[in-house]
Design a protein around this nucleic acid. Sequence first.
DNA 1: GCCGTTTTCGGCCCGACTGTTTTCAGTCG
Length: 575
Amino acid sequence: MKNAEISELFDQMADIMEILGDDPFRINSYRKVARLIGDMPTDVEELFKSGKLAETPGIGKSSLAKIEEFLKKGTITAHKDLLKKIPPTLLDLLKIPGMGPKGVKAVYENLKVKTIDGLKKAIESGALANLHGFGDKKAATIAKGVEFLRSATGRIRLDQAAEAAEIVCNFLKGLTDVEKIQVAGSFRRRAETIGDVDILVVSSKGEKVISSFTSAKFVEEVLASGTTKGSAIIKTSTSSVHVDVRVVPAESFGAACQYFTGSKQHNVRLREIALKAKMKLNEYGLFDKQDKMVAGAVEKDIYKKLGLDYIAPLLREDRGEIEAAKNHKLPQLIELKDIKGDLHIHTKASDGICEITELAEAAKKLGYKYICITDHSHSSAIAHGQSAKQLADQIKKIHKINEKLKGITILTGTEVDILADGSIDFDNKLLAELDFVVASIHSGLASSREKVTSRTLKAMDNPYISCIAHPTGRLIGEREPMDIDMTAVIKQAAQTHTALEVNAHPMRLDLKDTHCRLAIEAGVKLAISTDTHRLDGLIFMGYGVATAARGWAKKRDVLNTLSLAELKNWIKKKR
DNA sequence: GCCGTTTTCGGCCCGACTGTTTTCAGTCG
């Protein structure tokens, strides 16, 4: 799949044109193509061949020709030509917070700085501070930016963002001048990684609230502190998180929620719709041509006045939700309360740390009707996988526990390894004893596209395998997904009556949102599971539900919204 | 570079904060 490479090339062309001072609107169209291709869950080559790429709004003749060239030759002439115009290392400078295209151009032309190391020297010698348009403070900001780039990956996981949001919200709740608090930004949309946490506050004492925030004890560093906006790095138990707090007037609260929730692309589309209707939309409200506010205090009213159904934050990515809202075709999204059980759980028997009964009791408190115990199979030696005998004993043990247990049922299961040749770690006779089987790949993740794909397809042919767990194997920020043909996997899942897992762990979120959407469109059931190894991991279910919902999942698209009887019937159909 | 229920040419989203300035440019979201 060449989507990521093509997306990267278009972004690079846009970067170079920015440094060269090219037409901003032209640059924007390159960025748009980069985003569109990067977001596509389907192989761009397939879309090109079927002619669907040419129909995609935002991809015109010129971009299409460049993409075609890349598919045929592996390079884009326009990209090579642009690269000749600047030293390629200037693109690294652009990644430094505080350095934009103008700054990069200025240091290159005036100081002959081409690299981050060169920039560091220019900062140390004072040359940067003496440059026209710069100064001591700006040089210091850029020096910090260089450090930031070296230390951090820049983006954090959902659970890390959640902790930061909780710390700051709890603090703000304690301030007397704060009337309302709302977390916005990519965290509200439950994007898979978060850049910074945006928190909105209604208050008439903006400056006071901001200065309280920036001087709070959890603040490591203050980045900005004005009358309506404070920006700081705060300390959590696992990381340092960039948090922005913005104070807005009550009459603009809804507009601010809308604006700061984004995504940027979604907002651009809304403002275009406003302009066409002779109105203006900004973070203070929606205004008619006499500049009179027609909506602002309530977020839903903004959408209503623009002629749209209310769009849930999870869908605000400009992936068709605006058209659907216009035509009253938005899905009724799945919610956490629809979940009736967790189908992927580890215990002490393999690499978990809990007893079966502890997990069952905790799940009961969450309102679940069933859980499935799925310890590893013996090939996963690192995870202390169970032998066939150990699994057989565990089945008996679970039956016994079920006899005494009230209010929740424990299903017997396993997370069985898909071996290198696509065969399964246990024989079918043993698998037939189990209520529910998830299968997954834990070895050879870096092998070829053909290999990892055919292993997965073969596993799905097994009548006892009800679900493929973490289908791409990615670990966000740590490990790339396998090079697996998801179109083929989804097709096979539909044909073989196999569910695909949405692993809810914030480090996995696998399937990801766009793959969820493809699976749903193909009629595949999703199983949202935590894959927990400990008690407190059960609460990650919400991230999985959000990811599925970002893929437009409704309740009926998700396996573990079924009652126990319905679930058993569903499993029986394949056997 | 892309697009069209005002348009095949002429538009293309909007504001806060900062720092370097003498009224504004650059960056960010």
